[in-house]
Structures are given as structure tokens and as C-alpha cells.
Design a protein around this nucleic acid. Sequence first.
DNA 1: CTGAAAGCGCTTACAG
DNA 2: CTGAAAGCGCTTACAG
Lengths: 342, 342
Amino acid sequence: MKRGTEGKRRPVTIHDVAREAGVSRGTVSRVLNGGHYVSPAAQTAVNSAIRRTGYVVNRHARSVITGRSDSVAFLLTEPQERFFEDPNFNVLLRSCTQALAAQDIPLLLMIAGSEAERRRNLRYIAAGHVDGVLLVSSHSGDPVVSDLQAAGVPVVACGKPLGQRTRVSYVAADDRDGAREMVRYLYASGRRRIATVTGPADTPGGVERLAGYRETLAECGLPADDALIAAGDYSRDSGEAAAELLLRRSPDLDAVFVASDLMAQGVLDALARAGRRVPEDVAVGGFDDSPAALSTRPPLTTIRQPWDRISTEMVRMLLAMIRGEESAAVILPTELVRRESA
Amino acid sequence: MKRGTEGKRRPVTIHDVAREAGVSRGTVSRVLNGGHYVSPAAQTAVNSAIRRTGYVVNRHARSVITGRSDSVAFLLTEPQERFFEDPNFNVLLRSCTQALAAQDIPLLLMIAGSEAERRRNLRYIAAGHVDGVLLVSSHSGDPVVSDLQAAGVPVVACGKPLGQRTRVSYVAADDRDGAREMVRYLYASGRRRIATVTGPADTPGGVERLAGYRETLAECGLPADDALIAAGDYSRDSGEAAAELLLRRSPDLDAVFVASDLMAQGVLDALARAGRRVPEDVAVGGFDDSPAALSTRPPLTTIRQPWDRISTEMVRMLLAMIRGEESAAVILPTELVRRESA
DNA sequence: CTGAAAGCGCTTACAG
DNA sequence: CTGAAAGCGCTTACAG
């Protein structure tokens, strides 16, 4: 008897609502699905019956018929655990969850860290258990992209997927333009030996931000100098190592444009250890405007990536594709955030 | 015609498999659900038919009958966005996802940051769309706990939920014992003026770690001194402020036990600004062993929370409750991680 | 506009 | 051990 109270009561079905409203189940279903071809009277009766009974649709039963699951996967392809250390990832995941929730669509989180997980997730997705996937993948030529497309599943990537043979929808910040704006700002504040720490050459941020840096140097009439360029992998430690290399090769540098805030943290540490004051001796500009940018000393001047808009656009685009629209790409503008490091 | 290639092919059903294997659909279903009452011959025929056809079960159709969804929610109740800044949260979310994936159970991520979201998520969950929920809530007396229980949904919390009238299952690290171990270690290394920065008084970590600190002081014969205790809210900034307060009130302190690594970061900054060397002048011990502990200068000596085990246990326990087992609590041991700050 | 009926893909007693 | 049948909760042509 005790258990009976705790246990789930028999859920109310469309049948109960129909009886309560004095109509057929078909009519109830019609108001549930948009209310077309339903008289105002029936409409009202059904709605109030729904309220009285506390009815809520059984999505599984619906899915069996419609063939859609009304759910979406957030798929993370990342052998490195880097994404989870990256504050950017958090805000992306959070805003996607919320943008989807606003449409009453649950987000299934999937992580493909190994080949086995990749296969499992792919099987799940290809079986039609989700209507589409929000993809976060940093690999150039990641096979998961084409596998998904081959399975006929709508996909929207975060950032432009590199090395794909086919067109894939994506939403990205304007990396190149953001880099330009930062370097211009550094130049405008009087810096003339502007170095850069890049991201990996097989990521869009790695190539585009470097391109923006180079363009702006040329535009400002500053000489191109490879001794001012060091590569990182977006991790904090790689930023630190890159800065040490830069200081050795170009001790006269007076600014560094770093392709991510996390790496900029490392750069700041290396600079401090080398006895350089920031921003007096060396100005440092980051990229992302992640929470990390606020916790550095001094706080980081950086380029904000519009993560909220990125997620909103990803969700909007994916939903459109699920509805049958064509693929597309959206590039969102970035914004310079002035703090104290430059 | 082009579209035809891209579009989803008609999915293969249990019917196709039955025909291919030369048995009835009932038999196919039986092998799918454990293979009881199936002859080895039929077993083999069906399995190979499944392989040939690439059949994968339609979970929705199954759910309509079984009443289970074979999915689980990860529910985050957090108006502050603190959890997403906290590296601990990431590893928890990641390991839960993977522990679940190993059982082929998808994780639905839900965030209840506002009252409206809380209601929506609750409605979704109560409608039986998930079989159980993994709850991450930091609020003392969070109503979501009782709402979930009232709906008859199995729940396992991360950390002991404070201020609940009913029993709720949870998995937690042994906060008190971890605190004891750290303070003992500080004492053993010769410190005698050991301060502490606590977490909020309405969180388990806030009360238990402080209790462990107090007990150990007494056990070591050190006097209790409220001037050595300052409160934080787990944020980095609060750690910094607490350390400043402590330095003002007890300039002679020679060690600080900080109830989280993130706060310890702030403490380290405040100490550096005050010209105290770590660990020479002041030893600093953290709690969590989050990624943050590695990025401080010097790297943080801390107490490791066994997040992998916590997630594994949470998942195991939730699955057991879904199967009908009683609720329970699991306390997992922590471990001292020696690095350079103490 | 609306009811009766068929059917989605699956599971589960029920007879054998 | 196995097939035929009923049924899960819902949607959707199909007649009116």
C-alpha cells in the first residue's frame, strides 16, 4: 500500500481526455497538433479537459507514427579532453540547451572520445533516435561529418569544419575580422613589434586568426617577420611555451596577439616570469572573451565571440534543416572588449 | 532523384528481420529482449538476419509498451551560472554521460536556471519522458527534490541535499574526512596558525569541510580561533576577499585550508600581492583537485574528489532505483594530492 | 468539422 | 520453444 502511493499512477491518455471532453480521440489529437479543422467549441472543450486531467502527450507514441523524435543531439568529437577545460564549451552547451528547451526539444549529450564511442553514437543517431545533430568537432576532416551526412541526418557544426569534401552547415564567429580588429587596436595604441601566438593550423581559428594578423600588419605597413609568430594548441601551457619562444627570438616585442584567452593566460605568466610588465612593456590581446579573461592579472583585453548568438543560430538552422530547408553558413561578427592587458 | 539518395531509406523493422530469418516477429522480439525461450537455431538465424539487414530497434515503439524511456536526465538547478564555470562540473557531466553511454542510455541535459525552466523541466520529467534523474543542485531545501519525489521519479543527487524532509539518494565525497586529512598534513609540516576559507554554510561542502577543520585543530591541541575562519562562496573572487580579510585579522597565519581550488586561486593571488611566499611563508591547501589546481603558481596541494567514481556510483545507483531498489547513500573517500603549495 | 478505423513498430501473455 | 493475436498511445487519411 505504501508503495502504491509512491508508484506512478496510470498516466492519463488521449482516450481519457476524449471522454472527458465528449469528443473522439481523433479530435483531441487534432487540437494537440495545431487545432486545424476543429470547431471553437471542441477546441475549448478539449483544452479544458486537458487542463482538468493533467494530460501530457506521450512523445514515444507520437514518434512511432511521425517518424520524428523531437529531440536533438549535441555531439562532441574530441579525444583530447580539451573542450571540457575550455570555458567556451560550457557556454555553448548551456545556450544550446536553453535555446532548444525554449522550443520544448530535449538535448541529448553525446561524447565521442574514442573510436568505439564514435561508432556507438553514430549508430544511435543513424537509427533516427534524434532528428538532427549539433556538432562540435575540431578535427580537420573528421569522418563523423560525412558519416552523419551519409546517414541523411541534418547537421550543423560549430565553426567551419575543415577538410570536408561536401558542404556542411555551420555557424562561426568572424575569426579573421576579429583578429584584424585586435591587431589594429594594438597598432593604434603605438605598438610596432606585434607578435602572435596561433591556434593549431588544422582548425579554422588557427588559420583565420593568423590570416587576419598578417593582413593587418601589411595594411599598417609593418614588416612580416616569422620570428614574431609562434604556434600553440589552445592550451594554457602551449601559450606559455610559445611566449617563451617568442621572447627568446624577438626580445624586442611590445605586443602579443594570442589566439585564445586560455593561451593568453600562459603568455601572461611567461611574461611575468620574464619581468615584463603588462601592458606597460608588452600589450597582450586574447581571443574568445571566455571567463578566463576576467581571472587573469591584469584582466584581458580580448575579442568576444558571440556564443549566445552562435548557439541560437545553430539551433535555428538545425531546426530549419529538419524542416527540410537547405544547408547554409552563418558568420557572426565579433567585438573588441577593452580591459587592462592592452 | 538526387533528394532520394540523401533522404532516409525506409527503416528496417522487426518484420523484415522476421521474414529474413524465417521466424515470427515474436521470436525476433524475444531474442532482442534477452533470448529467453528461444532455441539456439532461431537465435542464430535471427542474429544473422539482424546483421544482414542492419536492423536497429525503434526505441519509441518499445517505450510505448514498456512504459520506460531508457533515458535519463541530468538536471542542473542553478540560477547562478557558477556550475558552468566550475571545472568539477565538467568532469561530472562528462563521466555521467560516458557511464550512461556504456549502458546505451542517452543522457538528456536539462538546465533549470529560472522558475519557468524549472517548471518546464519538471513537467517533462513527470510525464515519464525519462526514467530517472541525476540531480545537481546546490540549494538547501531545493523544492525540485520533493517535486521529483512526489512525481515518483527516481532521483540520485550529487552531494547530500540539505534541508530535505524526505530521504533522498545521493553520492558524495567524504568532505569531512578530506578536510581532516588536509589540516593534519598542514599540522604535520609544522604549521601552527592554520586558517580556513569555507564554502557557503548552506552547502554540504561548506559545513562538513569546516567541521573537519575544527575537529582536527582540536585533535592537534591547537586553539580554536574565529579570526582564522573566513567565508567564501566557492568563487575565485570570494577566495581572494577572504584571504585579504584573514591577513588583516590574523597577519601571523602560516597556512590556509581553502574549501575549493577555485577559491584557492584567489587566495594565492591575495597572498602574492601581500608579499607572502607560498609555501615558504604560508602553506595553501585546496579542495577538489580540479584542473584549476594545476594552473596555479605554485601548483596546488589539494584533496581529490573522486569524480569518476562519483559519477559511476550515481549512475549505478540510479539504474538500481529504476529497477525498483531502495534509495541509498554512498560516501566516497578522498585523497590528498601533494604538489607545491603546501 | 468530426468519428470510426487503420496502422506506426514493437512486446507480451496465451495457446499450443 | 514458437506463432498468432491483442494491445501500447497516438496520428492520419477516409468517409461523411
